[in-house]
Computed example of a mutant assay.
Amino acid sequence: MMNLLTKAKVLEPANPNRSTALFGGKASGILNWNDIAYPHFYDHREQIRALFWRASEIDMTQDIKQFPTLTEREQDAFLKIIGLLATLDGPQTDIAAKISDYSTDPSVKSIMATIADQESEHNHSYAYVLSSVTTLAKQNESFETGRKDEVLLKRNERIMDVYNEFAAFPTIENVLKVMIYTALLEGLFFYSGFAFFYNLARHNKMVGTSTMISYINRDELQHGRFISELFRATLAENPHLNTTELTDWVYDQFRYSVEQEACWSRYVLANIDGIDLYEMEGYVKYRANKMLRMLGLSEIYPDHIENPMKWIRAYVDNFDGNKTDFFEQKSRQYTKTSDLNGFDDL
């Protein structure tokens, strides 16, 4: 019989302030950051909160002028990738809220609320970019990509299944599976798209867009850090779910996701100047290894321990888990300037 979680009550004064479990436990609903079950969650909260920004802060003046000068292939990839990112980020606001609904730890609820807000801004930022550079018809067409593009629909099948399964049947096991796909979204699914915009920027194209993408990328890195930690803590609280079956399921999702990301890359990035598809696939496998390490699991691509796309480090924080613990590193400070972060000098 399936043990469904119930939504946590808003206030239950008979329960302790410090939660007894992340999911399926008891807590009053009163959040005292000096008395929480996982004190290091406060550090995650502070790091995520430090990343506040708004799409309207990004100067798109040069991008407006440059977009018509992009090749037809670059324009097509630009619009499809924005469509992909919107398809992935749109549900993240809702899924963060759903995880919060069923968590019985008020610190988790607080952090997920911030994550949900940031995901909402990410989705808004894609509309902001498109409204700056193309017509309303093209904007709407880009946002239809996630509903109509066959390659993208295939790519997102399992995401849709796992998210909808959790919405219908909120069990702890399904919470764990949702966290895995959230980690995949934050740490792997976006990266071929991010690489496209960073590649344009290193050729001094669409630098405003790439600046915004780097802000989103930094947010996602922080989200991925917290979700991975939440997954590990939830699994530790529920050791009966720490099975070979679950581990095998996670590895299968990672292999499938890498295959789909590589397929998408070949579809949308073919013939883009500066993008090597073989290198791109290696980068995706490298990212998969890093995400697995964060989740406490073993690497599955032993030939892809090093980042094959060294140039991308100029555009995004590099968390290298080889010598320094991923969770101990700090995100760089944002610089919100009208000269577009100095990318023209790279």
Rank of each mutant, 00 (worst) to 15 (best):
M309R: 15
Q260H: 15
H203T: 10
W311I: 01
Y102C: 02
G282K: 05
E57W: 04
E72A: 08
T61H: 06
Q62M: 06
A77I: 06
I81D: 09
L235N: 13
L85F: 06
P302T: 03
M309E: 10
I95C: 02
L130D: 03
S338L: 10
R332P: 14
V175C: 06
G282P: 12
A86K: 13
S100F: 03
R232W: 05
K290D: 15
M179Q: 04
L51V: 12
I213Q: 12
I172Y: 04
I95W: 07
E261R: 05
Q118C: 05
W249Y: 12
V316D: 07
E141K: 04
I99N: 06
T243K: 00
L4M: 03
Q66E: 14
E12W: 13
L130V: 07
L221M: 04
G282M: 03
G274V: 04
H124L: 02
V175T: 08
R287H: 05
S19T: 04
Y198I: 08
T71C: 01
G224I: 02
G342A: 04
Q66G: 09
F67G: 02
T104C: 02
R158Q: 13
S107M: 14
M2H: 13
K148N: 11
M309F: 13
V151R: 11
D117W: 14
A201N: 08
S103P: 14
E328L: 11
A21D: 12
I30Y: 12
L297G: 08
R218F: 12
G187F: 03
D94L: 11
S110L: 07
I58L: 01
I216W: 00
V250D: 08
Y256K: 10
E299H: 06
H223C: 00
L269D: 15
Y251S: 06
M280W: 15
W249A: 06
N15L: 00
L230T: 14
A55E: 13
H240W: 08
F41E: 07
A21W: 05
F327D: 03
L188W: 09
D35T: 05
K98T: 14
N322S: 13
A201K: 11
D345A: 08
L340R: 15
L200A: 02
Y215N: 04
L85M: 06
I227P: 09
A96W: 12
A127L: 07
N238S: 01
D317N: 09
